[in-house]
Amino acid sequence: MINQPLMVPEIVTAVALLVFFAAIKVQTGYTGMGYLILAHSAFCIPFAYLPIRARLQGMDLSLEQAAADLYATPVMVFRRVTLPQLWPGILAGAMLAFIISLDDVVITEFVKSAGQDTLPTYMLGQLRRVVTPEVNAISTVLLAVSVVMVIAFFFLSRSRK
């Protein structure tokens, strides 16, 4: 159920969200960023969830039990034992969700309200009229940023050993 956005075609999700938010907009009159944020959060959940789940499965449960044995409250167990082990998974999930959200065109195109544009929808809108070299510049920058990040993480993970 959580992984539904992965299985359902994107256009189906987009139109479903459009109809749902349209009904809410008519009721409340609120047109703002909230819908876009909600929509993106919704379909990014499986992408964030899967790395975290994988990390959880690989984690050692006995550490938590040991901490509880040593008089740690559940909150402290989570903060001091679980979270430090989990944070690479959370970080991976966050980055994956960010990338999927940055990349998404179809859902954003349908859900966006007046005055809202994301980078992909802006680029799509240019397609039939003028495509400025801006687009090439943006693509180069994105590529450069991803290369830099991969190199940075490579060196970071090496030093941790």
């Binding site: 139109v15 809410i24 907009k25």
Partner: peptide, 10 residues
């Protein structure tokens, strides 16, 4: 499609 769905704000 967007305008038919309503609540578009345009």
């Amino acid at each position: 499609a967007k305008i038919k769905a309503g609540g578009h704000g345009f």
